[in-house]
Structure formats: C-alpha cells, structure tokens
Design a protein around this nucleic acid. Structure first.
Length: 852
RNA sequence: GGGUCGGUGGCGGAAUGGCAGACGCAGCGGACUUAAAAUCCGCCGGGUUAACACCUGUGUGGGUUCGAAUCCCACCCGACCUACCA
C-alpha cells in the first residue's frame, strides 16, 4: 500500500481505468432520457511541431472542470477534442524534413494527444476528429457546395495579398502592416482570379445577432467594428461637359453644400476617362506609383498625396463645378471608391485641402474656432446650405437624403467595412475544391456521390509561381474529369484556407462517425448550440466570424436548428513567461541568468540582460514544457495551479514557485485522509458518525457553495481552489487533536468537490474510502442554505465611518439589539466621549455605523 | 486618432457599496531534528509608539454617500484590438 501522495503512481492508473470503463463516453440518443444537456467545447488546436507548453492547458483545464462538475450534477455532457490539422506550418515542415505533410501532422497529433491525456482531461476520445482526414473534409467540401449552389461562392479578379515567400495569397485578416501575421513575411498587392465567399450578404445578421449572445463585450465590440456598419447616402456627381458620372458614399450627406472637390481612388475606372490631356502624364505616374505600393507604404506615409485630373464635377446641391482629384487616401475597396471632399467638416479632407490649396467653407455651425484653422467634425446647425439652414445635423441628414431621393440625385445607403472573404490558397495541404472548370469557361460542382475529392499525391508540393499551384502538377487522372453527363473539364487546383475546417467542426462532434451526412438531425437538435466555448481572443474576428457565417448559411439551408453556434463564449488569458535578452537581442534561457542588485545578468559572463514578459515560444527560450512539469509535480498539481494562478480571463506570468503551494495542499489533503504508516484511512475518520451538528459541518457547506459558484462563474475558478484550501486548513487544525473524530461523510463530500480539479487524487482517495464506483461519476454535493451561515458572526462598529471595534453576536440578531450593543460598547463610549449621537445606521448582519 | 479591458503588499491575486490585502508564493522568527528536508506554530502595506493604541493606505485629483478599491467626472499609466472605411 502506498503511504504518501505520489502522483506518478496513481495518475496513469486512473487514466487507464477511465479509458477501460468508458467513463467519459458521451451518452447516445437512447441514453439521453430527460436529463439536461451541456456541450462544452475548447477551440481545438493546430497540432504544431513545438508540442504543448503550460500556456496551452489553461482553457482546457477550465472546460474540463466544468464538464466534470456538470456530469456529476447529472447533465448529459458533450466534451470533445480534435485537430485543426490542415495548414501552412505542416507543409513547410514537410518540405524541410522531406516528409509528407500527412505524416508530420500525424506525428504532431500523437504528441498533442499524449500530452492532453496525461493531463487527465475527460474528453470523449471516441469522438476525436481531424480536419485533414478524408472522412472529415468530404463534408467540408459538401458544405462548400451548399455555399456554391446558393451563389455565395464565386470567382473574381481581385487585388490580393500575395506572399512570395509562402507562394500563396492571404486573406485581409491574415495580413497586417504589409506582412503575414504568422511569420512576418512581406506581402504584395497583385490582381488574381480567386474564390470569394459572400460573407457581406450576411453582414447585417452577423451584426444584429451578436446582441443575443453571452459573449464578452469586448469581443462583440471587435466584431461590430470589423463588420463596420455605416448609415449614409450615395450621391451621384456628373462630370462637367461630359456624359460621365460617378457616385460617392458619405455618412454626412448634410454637408453636401460644403463639398468643394471630389477624389477618386487611383484604381477607380473613371480616372483614365476623365483626365484631361494636360494632366495625363502626372495622373498616370501617380496612379502607377500608388498601385504598386504595398499597403504598408500607403499607411506609413504621413502626408496626403494626390494629383488633379483636370476634370470638374458638378456639386448636385450647389450646381457649381468642383475639381476632381486622384488620391490614395481614398480606398477603391470601400464604398464607391470615390468621395466628396468636405474639408470644413472632415479631418482627412481638411488636411488634403490645406496641402493643395482647395477652398474650405463652413456648412455646420457649432465649432469653437473657424474651419480655417481646423475641421469641425461634430454635429451642429446647418448653415450656408440653402434648404438645410437651421436644421440640426440629425434632421439635416434626413432632409438631404429625402431631397436626393426626390430629385433622383442619390439615395440612402448602408455600407459595411466587412469585405467578401478571399477563400482560395495556392498551397498543397488544404481541402481541394469540389469544383470542375468546363471547356466553356463555366464551373460546376462535383456530384455528392463523388465526394470526397481526395488530395492527389504529388511529388513536388512546393509553391512555384503565382499562377501554378501545386495541385496543377497532379497527374492527368486527377486533373481531368468526366462528369456523369459526359461533359469534361479540369479540376480546380486551388485549395481552401485553414479556416474552412474549423468553420463547422463543432457540428461534426455531435455525430462524428456518420457516413451518410455531416451530422444527424436528431443529434444536432439535441446538442446544439454549444453551451460554453472557450479559447483565445486572437480568434475574435477570424474563426469566430467565419464560423458564425457558415452556421447562418447552414441555418438558411435548414441543416441546423440554431441561428448561432456558440451561446456562451469565454476568452482565456494568455500565460506568458519572462524572457531575458541582451543588448544585441540574443535570448538567454532562465537557467543561464541570475538576479544581481535588482537586475538580471548572464550567469557566466555578468553581461546585463533585459527581462520582459512575453508569450512562450521556443525562439525566446522561455517555454515551460508541459510534459516536464507533469513528470515533476503530477497532472493534478498542474491542473490546480493553472487555475490558482488567477482568473481564467486574465493574462498572468508563469511562475514555478507558486506550484509548490498547490502541491503542498494536495499532500495535506492526503495526510488528512490517509494514515502515513499503513496507507489505510486515518483512524480519526469515522464512518459511523453522522455529520449533523459536528464542527466541520458548516465549513463544509460553505465550501460546497463557494466551490460550486466559483466553477459556475467560469472566470473565478481560482477562488474555488482557495475555498478548498481554507476547508482543509480548518479540518487539519480540527484533526490536530488526536481525539477528534471526523465523520467520513464530510470527507467524502470534500473528495467529490476536489474531483473535478484533481481527479486522479480524488479517485484514489475515493477508492481507499471504500467506494466501489468512480468519484468522477458520483453525485455533486448539495449545500443547505441554513448551514452556509455561521452561528456567530462578526459585526464591525464604525463611528463616522471609521472602524472602532468588532463585536461577535449570534446570527440573526435584530437591529435594535445590535444598536444598543454598539452604543454600550466600551471603545465606542470612549470614542464618543459624551457627544450626542445624531444617527445610527444598522445594516443587519453587516455593520453598525454611529454618526455624531 | 478610435474602441475595449485593466492599475490593490516584495510577487500571483481576494474583496464589485459595509472589517482592504482572503488563499498561496517569497521573506523573517520559533518548535521538532545531531543536521537538513518535510511538517507544525507565530509575524509579514506604510508611519508614530516601550506598549495599548492612533494615523495613513487600493494610479492621480475631484464628486456622490452615514460609508467608496467598488458608483460618477476629469486626468495619468499599461495591455489588447483597430486604424486614411468617407
């Protein structure tokens, strides 16, 4: 018999028992009965080659604890795990090691799975999915066909973000400051024929349905900003002495009388047509230069630039000619690619007009200073605006919009910042499109019966040029297709982006082995929506917006029963670690630096290093490897510490010192229950003794309430650990008296509370306490509201709001008694020093405040 | 520039209108031990004090309230997101 707590000896043992007994198998339809359901999901990981560090399992630990508690509370729980397995890194690693991406992916998945299993997470591994497996991506292709059939997937020549280093295009969301967000490789603009998904058709619903979701406000706000709805008007401008015309979008139609010039984006099709011969050379040079410039250069420039076209437009309100300019501060991809310049009331237009000497006039009154000095962009009273004069901005907008519609010069318009989703990639390791290009130039979908379109095996998967993706080098057998009706064509050779598989994986989990459909209708209706979804905030506008979009399309197809996929969402904070870097930028491992006089230096050389809290990464030498820590402390201590370190939502630094505290706690639990000499249950734990009325009864009920509520809050599970520590401290002090007896019912209730947090230890103790069933499947303890209250409570006494004493009284003491007790309190009498009492505030059970 | 969240001991944090610093780490003192580890007990925001006590304290300044870390206003600092979106 083991006598002290040794996690290495019990963790593998219970993991085996859980697997062999199918303890965490998800109930199937005939087992649902009338119990409530709970679907708790982690954002599934991309199985990278780096393996798992201690930052990864923070969210997984939180979801595991809630899954385990819900199971014990009698819920039917769906708690699955899988792999987002297509993607660039595996393909690049495959090139480097001369392996197939599928082999790399399998190896990484095996590593990830082994680490997660060692953590003791209660996933139903029978439901594991892999987005790169043909029996999964068959259905990704099937869903793409739904989008295609609804006209939501189309091909277009679009300016794309081409990354020469990667040999592929990237979505707008993957590019920032002219670089690929993952690797920092530069990205350039290029016009290419690409697959697009019409997410903009769902912009309004993606926006309005956010309101009903139980998501962090910050995240909803990010999505709202990303969608970027603007209400305004489209206004038509005619070119002077010409049939040509163009439209502009504005959110301030009320300022039309103040439009003193117009600007077209360099890419605007009208530029060539209207430029006067005298301006032609300058305009062409400017346009050419702008088009070649990367987004980085365009946004980095401080000053506005632009060139006059020589042409004039007629302001439809004033009927006056105003000059038309070309400038790259106007984006071709937003609105109409053209604007009216109102320098008096728009900062950008003001800056532009200042630089090029264009007239600035006031049409909204209300500014402190003249528009000659700065643009006035707030609301106010319309002036110099004919029929708008005297109207407030809100009414003026309405009146102008009405006038535009009546006169046919414009109309009300809603614009979204959201663009359609660039959905194709020129890489190998992704889902092939289920699409065939026919000789006549049309595209058709591959029949369902021929899905999946398998990834062809090709020898050279490396990207070569922008118009020849790897799949175009597949053999003719794969490339050439004869449809059932005899028509022939070529397969699409782009692949889908990594986001595709994660757009619907939560649906596959409800019925992962279905070969006839992506999921069964009954299973979907039962388990959806996901009750709790936990993951990092970095997916706020990518994965979460794409998945919501696909879900709404599936809803419109009648394939899912909920409008939204994820009812409650939580962002776990990042666990970072300190890194150490010398002046040259070289990183040092924490073992090679030492603290010296409030600073850090390299141990061997004494060279000073700067320390910084950063995301864990191999290159920064600040990783704490998951397997190492499990080996040293055990999974239970690590699980506990992942939570104890702070709220789930908070970002906190990893500090190895703190884990000793939670491990001491687990040792203490063990020592309280197990006799160190025999390994049997401590003789002080008495199975025959009722817990009713015993000294530990009230602390236990308080602990049950505290722990239950902490878990339900999700964010504050750190306080659940504190509550259990408090209980064990109390119980240990009670047991310090060798004659003290503890009812085993109290201990068993505590072990059940501990079970979600430290499941291996809890199982071991539960078995040693003589229980035959698993504690993981035992009933969650209930608390009695009466017993949560202490019999005697501490009531502070304040004089003029300052604490003077604390009295101990029976709970439920009435206000009159509290008041008289306070007034006769010795310290109070001394402080009052005979002064008359003006008023006494008594908050029952809380405090007494005496005002004098 | 805009948005969101935050700022509490040496450190991670607790307290969301009622005893600030729970719980833990680190530190200091003690017990046990030949010694150490483990364990147990005590102290642990700052100041004045021999002590009892008293004062002060949650980024800064104001306000509301009998009472503010908590609510309101202004400012400072930090993190994340976003950024010529008309």
């Amino acid at each position: 018999m083991i006598q002290i707590y040794e996690p290495q000896n019990i963790e593998a043992k219970w993991q085996k028992v859980w697997t062999e007994t199918g303890a965490f198998r998800t109930p199937t339809a005939n087992e649902w009965h009338d119990r409530p359901k709970y679907y708790v999901l982690d954002m599934f990981p991309y199985p990278s080659g780096e393996g798992l560090h201690v930052g990864h399992p923070k969210g997984y630990t939180a979801t595991d604890i809630i899954a385990r508690m819900r199971r014990m509370q009698g819920y039917n729980v769906l708690h699955p795990m899988g792999w987002d397995a297509f993607g660039l890194p595996a393909e690049r690693a495959a090139d480097r090691y001369n392996m197939h991406p599928a082999a790399i992916t399998k190896r990484n998945i095996d590593t990830f799975r082994r680490s997660l299993q060692r953590m003791g997470f209660s996933y139903d591994w029978a439901r594991e999915i892999n987005t790169s497996a043909p029996d999964y991506y068959q259905w990704t292709q099937w869903i793409f066909k739904k989008l295609f059939k609804k006209g939501l997937a189309y091909m277009a020549d679009v300016p794309v973000n081409w990354c020469p280093a990667l040999g592929t295009v990237l979505s707008n969301e993957e590019v920032q400051d002219g670089k690929y967000v993952e690797t920092g490789d530069p990205v350039e603009r290029r016009l290419m024929r690409q697959w697009m998904l019409k997410i903009t058709a769902y912009a309004d619903r993606l926006l309005s349905d956010l309101d009903e979701l139980d998501w962090p406000e910050s995240l909803k706000e990010m999505q709202r900003n990303w969608i970027g709805k603007s209400v305004g008007a489209t206004i038509r401008f005619h070119i002077q002495n010409s049939e040509a015309r163009f439209e502009v979008f504005t959110t301030r139609p009320d300022t039309l009388f103040g439009a003193t010039y117009c600007v077209l984006a360099p890419e605007h099709p009208l530029v060539k047509q209207i430029t006067t011969p005298a301006q032609q050379a300058a305009v062409e040079a400017y346009v050419q230069q702008s088009i070649n410039r990367s987004d980085l250069d365009r946004t980095a420039q401080q000053e506005k630039t632009g060139v006059f076209t020589g042409a004039y437009a007629i302001n439809p309100a004033t009927e006056q000619p105003i000059p038309i300019w070309v400038a790259d501060y106007v984006l071709v991809s937003y609105g109409e690619g053209a604007i009216m310049g109102v320098p008096g009331h728009d900062e950008r237009d003001y800056e532009f007009a200042q630089k090029f000497g264009l007239p600035i006039i006031t049409v909204v009154d209300g500014g402190q200073s003249s528009v000659a000095e700065a643009a006035y962009t707030d609301e106010g009273m319309a002036v110099n605006s004919a029929f708008l004069n005297g109207l407030h901005t809100v009414e003026a907008k309405e009146r102008m919009t009405q006038w535009l519609e009546e006169t046919g010069k414009g109309r009300q318009q809603i614009q979204y910042r959201l663009r359609d989703w660039l959905f194709s990639r020129q890489r190998y390791w992704g889902e092939p499109f289920p699409i065939v290009h026919l000789e006549d130039g049309s595209t058709v979908a591959v029949p369902d019966a021929e899905l999946p379109v398998l990834l062809p095996d090709i020898d050279d998967r490396t990207p070569q040029s922008f118009d020849k993706p790897p799949l175009s080098r597949a053999d003719a057998e794969w490339l050439m297709v004869t449809l059932p009706d005899g028509r022939v064509g070529l397969r699409e050779t782009n692949t889908m982006p990594q986001w595709a598989g994660s757009c619907w994986y939560y649906l596959r989990f409800v019925d992962p082995h279905n070969t006839q459909a992506p999921w069964g209708a009954a299973e979907e209706a039962y388990w959806m929506p996901v009750d709790l979804y936990v993951g990092g905030a970095e997916h706020a506008v990518l994965h979460l917006l794409y998945a919501r979009f696909w879900h709404k399309v599936l809803y419109d197809c009648g394939l899912v029963t909920t409008k939204e996929p994820f009812q409650q969402l939580f962002n776990q904070g990042m666990i970072g670690a300190y890194s150490y870097r010398n002046r040259a930028g070289k990183y040092f491992h924490r073992d090679n630096v030492i603290a010296q006089d409030d600073a850090w230096v390299v141990r061997a050389t004494g060279e000073p290093v700067a320390t910084q809290l950063e995301k864990m990464s191999k290159s920064k030498l600040n990783v704490y490897n998951l397997d190492d820590i499990i080996a040293e402390y055990g999974a239970d201590s690590l699980r506990l510490y992942e939570l104890f370190i702070g709220p789930i939502s908070a970002s906190t630094p990893w500090n190895m010192d703190g884990i000793d505290g939670v491990q001491r706690f687990l040792h203490k639990v063990w020592r309280l229950i197990i006799d160190a000499d025999t390994g049997a249950v401590n003789s002080q734990i008495n199975a025959g003794l009722s817990m009713q009325g015993t000294e530990l009864e009230r602390p236990l009920h308080k602990t049950i309430k505290g722990v239950t509520e902490s878990i339900e809050s999700i964010d504050k599970m750190n306080t659940a650990v504190s509550r259990m520590m408090e209980f064990i401290n109390t119980a240990s002090q009670y047991a310090a008296d060798a004659n003290a007896q503890i009812p085993s019912g109290i201990i068993k209730a505590f072990v059940r509370l501990l079970a979600p947090f430290a499941p291996h230890l809890a199982e071991e103790l539960w078995a040693r306490l003589g229980e035959q069933q698993l504690v993981s499947l035992a009933a969650w303890p209930q608390y009695d509201e009466e017993l949560v209250q202490d019999e005697m409570i501490q009531v502070p006494i304040q004089i003029n709001g300052r604490l003077r004493d604390v009295m101990t009284v029976a709970a439920g003491t009435d206000n009159k008694t509290l008041e008289s007790l306070a007034l006769s309190n010795q310290k109070v009498v001394r402080h009052l020093n005979g002064d008359a009492v003006k008023r006494v505030i008594v908050v029952p059970g809380k405090l007494v405040n005496i005002i004098h």
